[in-house]
Lab assay of single mutants.
Amino acid sequence: VKKMAKAIMADPNKADEVYKKWADKGYTLTQMSNFLKSKTAGKYDRVYNGYVIHLD
């Protein structure tokens, strides 16, 4: 998940494709939050927020 999150950060155009894969795998927002937690607070906030919007 972190590898794909980094791919989104490097190229935001990949976001919809990645979010669809995550949704197809049934990842919940709680799971995504836990996967994307980082020592650098807020590092993956943009990715998480994008997934929230995708699921909505």
Rank of each mutant, 00 (worst) to 15 (best):
A15C: 06
T40P: 15
N49L: 14
A23H: 09
Q31G: 02
K2N: 03
V47I: 13
A23L: 07
K21G: 10
S33T: 10
M32L: 14
F35Q: 04
K43Y: 12
S38R: 04
Q31P: 00
G50L: 06
Q31K: 05
I8P: 03
D11T: 04
K25F: 13
T40F: 10
K20E: 07
I8D: 03
K43D: 05
Y44D: 00
I53M: 13
D16K: 11
M9V: 06
F35S: 02
V47K: 01
Y27Q: 01
A5V: 04
W22I: 01
L36R: 00
D11A: 06
Y44R: 02
A15W: 05
I8E: 01
L36V: 01
K14T: 09
R46W: 15
D24E: 15
E17Q: 10
T30N: 13
D56Q: 15
A10S: 11
E17L: 09
K2Q: 07
A15E: 04
N34I: 14
Y27S: 01
M32N: 02
N13K: 12
P12H: 07
E17I: 09
L55F: 04
K43Q: 09
W22M: 01
N13M: 12
K20Q: 12
K37H: 11
G26L: 05
V1G: 03
D24I: 09
K2S: 03
V1L: 08
K37P: 01
P12E: 08
N49M: 15
N49R: 11
K43P: 05
K21E: 14
K39F: 09
K25W: 15
Y48D: 01
D45P: 01
K37Q: 12
G26Y: 04
I8T: 03
I53Y: 09
A5E: 01
A7T: 09
K6H: 10
V52C: 09
V18G: 03
I53E: 14
A7Y: 09
K21H: 14
K2E: 06
Y51S: 00
M9R: 06
V52N: 03
D56N: 15
P12G: 07
T28A: 02
N13G: 13
D24L: 12
L55D: 01
K20V: 07
S33K: 15
N49I: 12
M4L: 11
E17V: 09
A23P: 00
G26P: 04
A7C: 11
K37C: 13
L36H: 01
Y27E: 00
N13V: 08
D16T: 14
V1T: 04
A10L: 12
I53H: 13
N34H: 14
P12R: 06
D24Q: 13
D24F: 09
L29Q: 07
I8F: 03
A5H: 00
H54K: 02
A5G: 03
E17M: 10
K25M: 15
D11V: 05
D24C: 12
M32W: 02
E17S: 11
L29D: 04
K43G: 05
G42D: 07
K3W: 11
S38F: 07
A23K: 09
T28Y: 02
R46A: 15
S33P: 02
N49F: 14
V1S: 03
Y51R: 00
N34T: 11
A41K: 14
Y27I: 09
K20H: 09
A10H: 10
Y44K: 02
K43M: 10
K37E: 10
Q31I: 09
V18C: 06
T40V: 11
